[in-house]
Amino acid sequence: MYNFDYEKAASADDAVKAAGGSDDVMFLAGGMTLIPTLKLRLTQPEKVVDVGGIGDMKGISVSGDTVTIGAATTHADVAGSDDVKKAIPALAKLASLIGDQQVRNRGTIGGSIANADPAADYPAAVVGLGATVKTNKREIAGDDFFTAMFETALEPGELITSVSFPVPEKADYQKLANPASGYAMVGVMVAKTKDGVRVGVTGAGPSAFRASAIEDALGSDFSSDAAKGVTMSSDDLNNDLHATAEYRASCISTLAARAVKAIG
């Protein structure tokens, strides 16, 4: 690993100042993606600003019908949170399915969505539940956050401070995990909300997206048969050694149907 400067930030303001809007400075949260990337020399920042110890960016709060999770909150804390289990059990379930125990003990929601891995789990929740991503300077709608493979709406040096999820009436997350890596080959979050049905998909395309054809079908008939009956287009889906685009397309409908069944 090439060497770099390291600075531990005490607050979100300090972290943003230390990053200075530069492309050569990277935030470090759980390090579960950044450190392996540094080891493989796939990235080479001049400086790393550690945001993992910022108290204000950790923790979970529920107010009214919104669950807000600090960006530096670990997957294990979300998976184990009684508040999340009560308000949005599908979100706690999703967090419990990420990687393995050691990864969940370190990896954070902010790091996961900033990284925008096409096969990461949280993006399905950000899109599927209609979350709002808060940064040091603005709020970004979940629908606008993921822009392309490993690309987000974040600007250089912009820090995610928290993610807010509106509490749905009911929701479920279904994941077809890659048996070797544990990442999602396809993951689907189905949410029944007062404004209609939302279906967020990860793993299948270059970045997370909403399956509007399934949303429409479930809008008129909320049944697993209705979800299963939708033939998703495989255009623009990922096609790699793990699965063909056609297989992924078919998995989206199948997993959405399973989620609807689990919701009951």
Binding site: Y6, L28, G31, I35, P36, N105
Partner: peptide, 15 residues
Amino acid sequence: GKSVKSCTMLAVQCD
């Protein structure tokens, strides 16, 4: 008190 992969943590993070 929590299990971690020590190959994926910087020593300075454990200060």
